[in-house]
């Protein structure tokens, strides 16, 4: 099981934060669709992965020490060919080493570039009273300002997931606002149930962010993920 391997590895290294690659591997195994994300320790490997996944790709620095990847110059998007990938690799490495010279950088993650969709946030935290709870909300600035999110206590059923997506004030955006296509809400509800089932069975996990997650007319994909383990 990839989940057990990843958790064991993190424990061995005495860290509670998983890398984005690890987080997506785990979520993928839990049945949650994530962008194809693989580790490239070298530039050559980065190009090989990009050719396999197919352009355009995204490159992100992979380091448990760098939390804010964009601020460190560790993210390059919409790379359309071999040359752009090679340049991006060098630039990311140079910038991150300059910004955080002591960071342990395991390499660079090469990811398929998801086509834009409606930005969603899903996540999980542990509440002192109720234990694990899952969250659903619309991503982006609105979620930060209005905190327009819904929660349910784990484990949830499909009916709870339906209530979660219905409860948010920005519900109209899910239904397709001003000519935008509607989001595949049933798929999102399914993802919430999968997330709940997963955390219910995996008590070692303390917090999960799937942010952003792009929702489409048909399906959805996790673009960035973060998992924090129990101390």
């Amino acid at each position: 099981m990839i989940i057990d391997e990843v958790l064991a590895q993190a424990k061995k290294e005495n860290r509670s934060v998983l890398t984005e690659i690890e987080a997506k591997q785990i979520l993928f195994e839990a049945g949650i669709n994530c962008t194809d994300t693989r580790l490239a320790p070298t530039k050559e490997k980065a190009v090989a992965i990009a050719e396999e996944i197919g352009y355009p790709v995204v490159l992100k620095v992979s380091s448990v020490d760098i939390t804010h990847k964009s601020d460190a110059g560790g993210v390059k998007v919409n790379l359309k060919n071999k040359e752009e990938v090679e340049n991006a690799f060098d630039e990311i490495m140079a910038s991150c080493k300059k910004v955080q010279p002591n960071a342990d950088i395991e390499g660079i993650s090469v990811q398929g570039m998801a086509k834009p969709g409606l930005e969603i946030i899903m996540g999980m935290i542990k509440d002192d009273t109720f234990g694990p709870v899952v969250m659903f909300g619309l991503g982006g600035v609105l979620v930060e300002v209005l905190k327009d999110v819904s929660f349910r206590i784990v484990p949830i059923e499909k009916a709870d997931a339906v209530e979660m997506t219905n409860e948010i004030q920005g519900k109209k955006l899910l239904e397709g606002y001003r000519g935008q296509p509607p989001a595949d809400v049933a798929y999102l509800q399914d993802m919430l149930v999968k997330l709940s089932n997963f955390v219910h069975q995996t008590p070692q996990i303390n917090e999960i962010d799937m942010n952003p997650l792009f929702a489409y007319e048909d399906g959805a994909v996790v673009v960035d993920a973060r998992i924090i383990l129990e101390d």
């Binding site: 934060v17 946030i121 509440d127 009273t129 109720f130 819904s150 929660f151 962010d209 924090i228």
Partner: peptide, 20 residues
């Protein structure tokens, strides 16, 4: 440490439990 955590409050979680 998570974004999700910063969105949560006791009130919201209790309300969620009540609805659920």
């Amino acid at each position: 440490q998570s974004h999700t955590g910063s969105m949560a409050s006791d009130t919201k979680i209790v309300e969620a439990a009540i609805k659920q």
